Simulated scan of single mutants.
Amino acid sequence: MAKIMIVDDAKFMRTTLTNILIKAGHEIVGEAENGKIAVSLYRTTQPDLVTMDITMPEMSGLKATQMIKSEFPDARIIMCSAMGQQKMVVEAIETGAKDFIVKPFDENRVLDTINRVLK
């Protein structure tokens, strides 16, 4: 079981991921709707893993990933992207994201990716 933080500006997406992860036995230690909140929440919750949306208001997932990784080099972050955001996904991996999952979420693919990154 891992402690996971979910970051997405869409409540529906956070709820979808929460349901998938709780069903698989993980614990949700925090939710954030933008990158700025994600960075401060990461400091207080120190999760095992973060699912990070790329496109969000106030601060993007890319910027939040950079900030978290600069403070916590061992942070494990998985980017969540919509179809057609491949360029941003590549950028995210370059800034330190470990992997990515594509929306709409496929339960098996989400869990496979998370288990692979947690190993």
Rank of each mutant, 00 (worst) to 15 (best):
M1P: 13
M1T: 14
K3A: 10
I4V: 15
I6S: 05
V7N: 02
D8E: 11
A10Q: 15
A10K: 12
K11E: 11
K11C: 05
F12L: 15
F12T: 15
M13K: 02
M13V: 13
M13S: 14
M13F: 07
R14Y: 07
R14T: 08
L17P: 02
L17Q: 01
T18C: 05
N19S: 10
I20W: 08
I20P: 08
I20D: 10
I20K: 08
L21K: 01
L21A: 03
I22S: 11
I22K: 15
K23I: 00
A24T: 08
H26V: 09
H26T: 06
I28W: 01
I28C: 00
I28D: 01
I28R: 00
G30D: 12
E31W: 02
A32R: 09
A32G: 01
G35S: 12
I37G: 03
I37F: 09
S40K: 14
S40Y: 11
L41Q: 08
L41K: 06
Y42F: 15
T45N: 05
D48Q: 04
D48Y: 01
D48P: 01
D48V: 02
V50Q: 01
V50W: 03
V50I: 13
T51Q: 05
T55N: 14
P57Y: 08
E58T: 07
M59A: 08
K63E: 15
T65W: 11
M67T: 04
I68A: 03
K69Y: 07
K69W: 13
S70V: 09
S70D: 15
S70Y: 08
E71R: 10
F72E: 12
F72R: 04
R76V: 02
R76M: 04
R76Y: 00
I77M: 00
I78E: 02
I78S: 06
I78L: 07
M79H: 02
M79Q: 03
C80T: 06
C80M: 15
A82F: 04
M83I: 15
G84S: 14
Q85T: 09
Q86F: 01
K87L: 03
M88E: 11
V89L: 08
V89H: 04
V90A: 06
V90N: 03
V90I: 13
A92F: 05
I93A: 10
I93V: 13
I93C: 06
T95W: 11
T95C: 14
T95P: 00
G96H: 07
A97Q: 05
K98M: 11
D99H: 06
F100W: 01
V102Y: 00
V102D: 01
K103H: 03
K103G: 02
K103S: 04
K103M: 04
D106H: 10
D106K: 09
D106N: 15
N108Q: 14
R109G: 02
V110D: 01
V110P: 04
L111F: 04
D112V: 12
D112P: 09
D112H: 14
D112K: 14
T113H: 01
I114E: 11
I114R: 05
N115I: 05
N115S: 15
N115M: 12
L118Q: 03
K119G: 12
K119Q: 13
K119P: 04
